[in-house]
Nucleic acid binder design. Sequence first.
DNA 1: TTTTGAGTTGTTCGA
DNA 2: GTCGAACAACTCAAA
Length: 485
Amino acid sequence: MPHEARPRPPTILWFRRDLRLANNLALENALATGAPIIPLYIREPNDPHAGANGAAQAWWLHHSLTALDAELRKRGNRLLLLTGDPCHLIDWLAREVGAQAVFWNRRYDGEGRQTDTEIKAELRRAGICAESSPGFLMHDPAELQTKQGKRYAVYTPFWRSFSASYQPPSQIPAPTSIPAIEHGIESEQLDHWRLLPANPDWAKRFADLWQPGEAGAGKCMAEFAGHLSGYGEQRDFPAMPATSRLSPHLAFGEISPHAIWRAAAETKSSADSIERFRKEIVWREFSWHVYFHNPDMAEANLDRRFDRFEWSNAPDKLAAWQRGMTGYPIVDAGMRELWQTGTMHNRVRMIVASFLIKDLLIDWRDGERWFRDTLLDADRASNAFNWQWVAGCGADAAPFFRIFNPVRQGETFDANGGYVRRWCPELAKLPDRYIHRPYEAPKEVVDEAGIMLGQTYPRPIVDHAEARDTALAAFRATRADRDND
DNA sequence: TTTTGAGTTGTTCGA
DNA sequence: GTCGAACAACTCAAA
């Protein structure tokens, strides 16, 4: 048979956390082969979230895959959904469709890297081209090193080094068409993956607040560009809409971090706002840098001296924290915002994390797990990194005596209680003076506000001043232990 | 190899 | 109300 008569062997494009068509190097490389492309998403067996980090993110993933499929269809292609062990599945699929090449964008968690290395070796043994590309991060964790050739462990030198050497790559627009092939493999139905909650549908507010997918990410970036000028001054105030809200999009790779970096400068905002925002984006890079070198970061204290710390076993208090019923309004508002919207303002994340760890003395891993399950922007590196940072056992971590006072934080960053009133409506009628400490309000003020302390709103589950002293002693003691080694 | 300067986000106390 | 110091050393990264 003459060569020309045969259909061109297809190329497999394996999507993971890079659910976009613009600035997607794996896609670019796949297109460059000139072959038809089979876009693939794999759900691993026994993974109820199909690669999402938790239940909230599974909701996002469902909609993001739907959006990606729609964009592929506009370009004459469609997404193939399959379940199986990626190594076997890709091998099988490549044989089945006669694929000559497989492309993907790199991931940086330990398990994922190991899998990818195995698959690459397996494919190459079978004579199939396998190529991975960067694009999830702006830096290569294996490449960016200190002058002594070591990994970075402190943010500021990391930032200096990164920003001094960084050159944003040129933009790659989304292709207008993506050649397809009739391969005869039937896609699974996304609905059958059951990524959306039912009974009860706790995600029903999500759709009003978020638009998963690349188009939604673009809109989000454009909207943020319009008010980035206020970022530097307003970002710490949770009642203000000053943050970018890009994090869930970034977590799924619906927008390239390079594109965000570039777009920030194009806003013509003050240099201060641009730099402060970029520094936040680079914290994500730093988290992945540290995670890359410490693949067990979500389970193990980076500072092993904390292994001896005796965390408190307090399921009732943990539950009160999770439900936003601690009796400290700023903490409760944050936990309820998280539950209802799948996100929480950055400053409030620090306040609630400090409260769990330092006021309740509950293991940071319990907080990490809860955030991972409930945050739409759950990111294995950022989440574990920041929980360890608050606990004091992480990289470049907060000192143990840095304990947030939930009342003081509330009064400083939510002075007129706008944030608390939004998420704890039962407190809405309290005057500003008591909005962050209803338990100190005179009886007539509480009555006037229609609150029954202990019934319609809880009394504080711990006394902060006492809890602070206990925490200081406990953390000091572990440090003293160490000296006796 | 040794030295040196520096380090995301806080709170409290006393002047 | 505002300010500086204390909190605790410790380790990182560069020179």
